[in-house]
């Protein structure tokens, strides 16, 4: 039978994949996708907990807002990527280092 633990393990795994992707990829686009993965993993946890405590819809509501915020984040993030590309002709995150030191 499928228990809450299954969902939690799955979400943890996806979150770890997203984090690893964010830390290992130099392509800003894929880093943004990794962030989406992590957000999705969190959503799974929220929805799963809500399913096992169905007195109200707090978890699903939270997931709803997370989806909205993720959409906003994607819009702004991708516009920044376009700006960066205009400026540097690349989407390599290493090259966006004007503020270092």
């Amino acid at each position: 039978m499928i228990s809450l633990g299954h969902y939690l393990a799955l979400a943890t795994l996806i979150f770890g994949l997203g984090a690893a992707g964010f830390l290992s990829r130099r392509n800003v686009l894929i880093q943004l996708m990794s962030i989406e993965l992590m957000l999705n993993a969190v959503n799974v946890v929220l929805v799963a907990f809500n399913r096992f405590h169905p007195e109200n819809h707090a978890g699903q509501l939270f997931a709803f807002f997370v989806i909205a915020v993720a959409a906003a984040e994607a819009a702004v993030g991708l516009s920044i990527v376009i700006s960066l590309f205009r400026l540097k002709k690349t989407v390599e995150s290493d090259r966006a280092d004007l503020l270092k030191h």
């Binding site: 964010f22 830390l23 990829r25 880093q31 995150s93 280092d97 270092k100």
Partner: peptide
Amino acid sequence: TRVQNGVVYAYG
């Protein structure tokens, strides 16, 4: 300052 290398996944 070497730590501040401007590489975002290093900060991560």
